[in-house]
Simulated assay, not measured.
Amino acid sequence: MPAHAAHHDDREIETLQEFDATVSARGTLAGFRIQAVDLTDRTRELLSTDTKGAIFLGCPMRENAAAKIRADGAMVFPPVPDLPFDPYRGLLYTPDELFAHLDKGYEHTPDALTYAWFQQTKADGDILASMLRSVHDDAVSDALDELLRGTRVVGVMGGHAMARGTDAYAGAARLGRELTRAGFTVATGGGPGAMEAANLGAHAAPYGDEMLTEALELLAKDPKFTPSITAWAKAAFEVRTRWPKGGGSIGIPTWFYGHEPPNPFAAHIAKYFANATREDGLLARANAGVVFLPGAAGTVQEIFDNATPNYYESRGEPTPMVLVNREHWTEKLPTWPLLQSLARERSMESRIALVDRIEEAPEALKRLGG
């Protein structure tokens, strides 16, 4: 996974370390964008540095510093009080951040509190809340683009119903591991089931093969996120504590499906309020292809969300699409025949494949040009 700081716009400052380095090296903040950095203890620097044309997004600071930089001609978007999330955040979430206070129960975590806020404000129809959700989602997209620049991303899609302890879950985990070992960055919808399994596999990539076997056994004790998200999440954190130096992968979940928690195995979590933004963002960033594991309505939707730009070549060359489990995609939910018909005599025809077993997916992806 590429280092974050090497890639973002060099006018963006997203950490206190970057702020100090910029003031020290440049002697000016004119024209910079400072995003969600706590500047309460940097009053001296703000008072003595030119900030003309700078934009401060949600940066706590002393009142005299704020007055001075406004007088310089900077724009100041102050922090919004009493929110369970930061709409101006500069970096993606981590599992530890979203699941903070899990020891008191999932309902006390920032993830659960943000969902509760979302439900409340959605019902109110409050214009400020909808604006904050949009600003947040845009900040998340910006952070995601910065993180993924220069990487080869493979999306792994599949249903949340796939339980820990099943052969299918173990297969999805091995898939995530093999893709990560092959140099791809695995990106999933960030939720439970098949998504969690692929993120777990990516986490397992640097370890020997026996680590994944042990981790799967540990997780099988809490197979689903119902009835207790707390127990389900704690089992995952137990695995992460035992094997802390995992491979990096991306989870892109949404608060739109509030009943569905993010999984703790994605190193970086791009969580959105708007599901449409999240769906399109996930597929658009899977520049090395997408593997579709058995799923239901959500996965069917993702197949055709991905097929449409491939059909019209609206994102350039079509990207590989690999569907796993012939019976599922030809009989249970006969998506493959329709996808084949759509692809006929178009350039995407050579970029789609149906395989029986999950173990065949990495090779199929390679064959299709992933």
Results as ranks from 00 to 15, higher is better:
23 V>H: 04
71 A>S: 14
41 D>F: 10
56 F>H: 02
25 A>L: 11
58 G>M: 03
53 G>D: 13
36 A>S: 15
21 A>G: 05
52 K>M: 10
28 T>F: 04
45 E>Q: 15
52 K>R: 14
22 T>F: 10
22 T>V: 14
44 R>G: 13
28 T>G: 05
60 P>E: 07
25 A>K: 13
60 P>W: 03
39 L>H: 08
39 L>P: 10
34 I>P: 01
67 A>C: 03
47 L>R: 12
28 T>N: 05
73 G>W: 10
68 K>Q: 14
71 A>E: 13
68 K>T: 12
57 L>Q: 11
46 L>G: 03
73 G>T: 10
50 D>C: 08
53 G>C: 10
73 G>N: 12
63 E>W: 00
60 P>Y: 04
33 R>S: 12
67 A>W: 03
34 I>V: 15
36 A>Y: 01
69 I>F: 01
50 D>N: 15
64 N>E: 15
73 G>I: 02
27 G>I: 07
60 P>H: 07
24 S>E: 15
69 I>K: 01
68 K>N: 05
64 N>Q: 15
74 A>M: 04
32 F>N: 03
32 F>L: 12
48 S>T: 15
27 G>R: 06
52 K>D: 11
40 T>H: 09
57 L>V: 01
51 T>V: 07
61 M>R: 07
24 S>V: 07
61 M>Y: 06
23 V>I: 14
58 G>Y: 01
46 L>S: 04
63 E>T: 08
74 A>Y: 02
38 D>S: 11
25 A>E: 14
24 S>D: 14
41 D>A: 14
70 R>H: 06
54 A>S: 13
21 A>Y: 09
52 K>A: 15
58 G>R: 00
38 D>E: 11
29 L>H: 09
59 C>D: 03
59 C>W: 01
48 S>D: 15
47 L>H: 11
33 R>D: 08
70 R>E: 12
21 A>Q: 13
35 Q>W: 06
56 F>C: 04
41 D>R: 14
45 E>D: 15
43 T>Q: 13
43 T>K: 07
52 K>L: 11
28 T>Q: 07
38 D>P: 02
34 I>N: 02
42 R>V: 10
28 T>H: 05
44 R>Y: 14
49 T>F: 11
57 L>A: 12
62 R>I: 00
65 A>F: 00
29 L>G: 03
47 L>E: 13
71 A>N: 11
66 A>V: 08
32 F>S: 08
56 F>M: 06
30 A>V: 04
69 I>T: 07
31 G>P: 02
45 E>G: 07
33 R>K: 12
64 N>F: 00
61 M>I: 02
62 R>W: 00
59 C>H: 01
64 N>T: 12
20 D>H: 11
22 T>C: 12
23 V>L: 11
70 R>V: 08
65 A>Y: 01
19 F>N: 00
19 F>D: 01
33 R>L: 14
54 A>V: 02
72 D>E: 08
54 A>T: 05
23 V>R: 02
19 F>R: 02
45 E>T: 09
53 G>I: 06
67 A>G: 03
49 T>D: 09
63 E>C: 00
41 D>E: 14
37 V>R: 00
28 T>I: 06
48 S>P: 04
73 G>L: 04
30 A>W: 00
73 G>Q: 11
40 T>S: 14
39 L>R: 08
74 A>T: 02
29 L>N: 05
26 R>M: 11
29 L>C: 10
32 F>W: 04
33 R>C: 12
